[in-house]
Simulated scan of single mutants.
Amino acid sequence: MKHQIILPLIALLYAGSAYAASVDAPLVTRTAPDTLTVTWTDKNPVDVFLSNDPAATPGTARLVSKADRDGTETVTIPAGERAYFLLKDRQSGDLARVAERVLPLRQGSNFRDIGGYPAAGGKHVRWGLIYRSGGQPLLSDADVKEIQSLKLANLVDLRSNEERVIAPTRVDGVPYQAVGYSMMALAGNGVPKNGAAVYQAMPTMMAPQLRLIFQDLKANKGAIAYNCTAGQDRTGFVTGMILSALGVPRDTIIADYHLSTTYRRPEWEMPKIDTVAQANNPVAMYFAKFQQDPAVAKPQPLKDPDGTAFLSHAFDEIDKRWGSVDAYLEQEIGVTKVDLAALRANYLE
């Protein structure tokens, strides 16, 4: 079933994602713990380059396959190393850059790069600059080192006060920002049912956090990451706003959003809660109920029974109240048209 879900998403996410038409549908797949396979389609032979620098050029990257005609190359990667491939059409000189979408953390959940997506002006989102994630309270030491190797300029935690106390991040050595609010503001009265009501509130509720993130993006100081607990709802909304600002098509944004169902690892998002010690903590008990429900151990599709993506309700609310995402970003987040142009210059290639 998982393959039936993920393959259409891959087709959508990578359709037309090469930086030129001759190198089409580049994709990186982890085929073993220390092995990556890059695939592509091209009628011409392709030179395959490899680097740990997301901005590498053929002149600075390592050539791993010359005049490759079979559309696939497998390489061994040291543990914890982030790899970026450059594919160069030998006839046209056209380039495509691609990397593994999700970081293969041992005890992490849903930590992934949002680079590579088609965006404004026929360009693509740069790899290695914007990361989305679930909570990081149970990362292994190796995971912490792998995240530190990304050289993040900032980490913005979208979680509530209570979540940050119950499950503090293990990412050390990275500047850290958060905006305080209570989980009860998200939960309302009782346990919320994920869907339209939750997402319709996000443009207002997440505005302070969005302001922080766009301040970081506008400052262009380097790579950033942001997270909530599952890395799918609050993080999904924020990602939708960032990708919209960069001119990524709405259907691609929704497809990226649904990847959380594949890449979440709920067992690493929250420490085991002691229900006796936390009996008087309503937020801890709220998460404890989820931990006691076997069904929650498996990520659930983020859509209504009719197939409507939950994230679509946030977009609909923005369109209704502000007229467009651009208007929302300008009026509520302080991202002007001049800012949008600068963001696209800095985060697209």
Rank of each mutant, 00 (worst) to 15 (best):
A288I: 01
G180Q: 11
L246T: 10
H313E: 13
F49K: 00
Y84S: 00
A201R: 10
K43V: 12
L105H: 13
V338Q: 12
M1K: 14
A225H: 03
A284R: 06
T74I: 03
L63P: 00
D256Y: 00
S312I: 15
L348N: 08
V248E: 01
A32R: 12
L139C: 12
L103K: 03
Y14I: 06
D94Y: 08
S149W: 12
Y257H: 13
M202E: 05
L103H: 15
Q107E: 11
D143R: 07
Q177K: 14
R62F: 12
L105S: 05
L348E: 15
Q200P: 00
A297Q: 15
D256N: 04
Q215A: 13
P26I: 07
D251R: 08
P137Q: 10
T261V: 15
L343Q: 01
H258E: 09
L139S: 09
A15Y: 03
P282C: 04
V325W: 00
D47K: 01
G173P: 13
V338G: 15
W40Q: 04
N161I: 14
D233P: 06
Q209W: 11
Q148A: 12
S312R: 14
I10N: 05
G16V: 04
S109P: 08
P271S: 07
P249R: 06
S160Q: 11
L103E: 05
P192M: 07
A327G: 10
K151A: 10
R321W: 07
D172R: 13
D251L: 09
